[in-house]
């Protein structure tokens, strides 16, 4: 360590020793308050609108194609949401399970679809030892459907969600595009329906 650096370190140590300790605090946010924005990664400010956008568009389209039941009421389609695959460059941490729950709830509230409980989905995958990404194959779909029927949980559609990100680097920061893709597969016809929503976010390091 050179002399200058040592003197600065000494000064820093003196000030550090006499510094002040931050007290942790928490408060309930008002519903109108803006969500916090992650400084280095995506958070609620990205995931909340992206889910609403992608799911809203998919529901709207599917709602229009529903065949009316005898009573004139659209028959709810039974959907098996097999999970969210995170292919982005960021860890979702505790957010992943929350995204799954939000998608689950919104599907049930749509009136177009009826969602199978995630606990049954987990049990079905555990029984068949199939991975969610293997359910794209028709043979695996049949095996999984049989396992779900054995649990009394037949379904008409499989729903897959994938989160991806694209990073553009520039001199003093980066831009990230977050894309949530929902794929709905009709088991009877094998027809897939796909919908995506994107949010762009920029990250910069501020210097004072």
């Amino acid at each position: 360590m050179n002399r200058r650096a040592f003197v600065v370190t000494l000064g820093g140590a003196a000030l550090g020793a006499l510094g002040c300790r931050a007290t942790p605090k928490g408060e309930v946010m008002n519903p109108n308050q803006k969500d916090a924005s992650g400084a280095t990664a995506a958070g609620t400010e990205v995931f909340k609108p992206i889910i609403e956008d992608a799911l809203g568009k998919l529901m709207a389209r599917q709602g229009g194609t529903v065949t009316p039941a005898s009573a004139g009421q659209p028959a709810p389609k039974r959907v098996c949401f097999v999970g969210l695959e995170n292919k982005s460059s960021e860890e979702l941490g505790d957010f992943k399970d929350q995204i799954v729950q939000v998608i689950d709830t919104k599907i049930n509230q749509s009136g177009v679809f009826q969602q199978i409980s995630g606990r049954f989905v987990k049990a079905g995958l555990e029984a068949t030892r199939l991975r969610p990404d293997q359910l794209f194959l028709p043979a695996n779909q049949r095996t999984f459907l049989a396992a779900m029927e054995a649990q009394g949980q037949p379904f008409d559609y499989l729903l897959f969600a994938t989160l991806t990100s694209g990073t553009t680097r520039e001199a003093n920061g980066t831009q990230k595009n977050y894309l949530l893709t929902l794929e709905l597969v009709n088991l009877q016809t094998g027809t897939p329906d796909k919908e995506s929503a994107e949010i762009r976010k920029s990250y910069r390091t501020s210097r004072w």
């Binding site: 695959e85 995170n86 992943k96 989905v121 987990k122 995958l125 991975r131 969610p132 990404d133």
Partner: peptide
């Protein structure tokens, strides 16, 4: 059994 992507990461 539903989060193999997290496990891989």
């Amino acid at each position: 059994h539903t989060n193999y992507d997290d496990a891989a990461r």
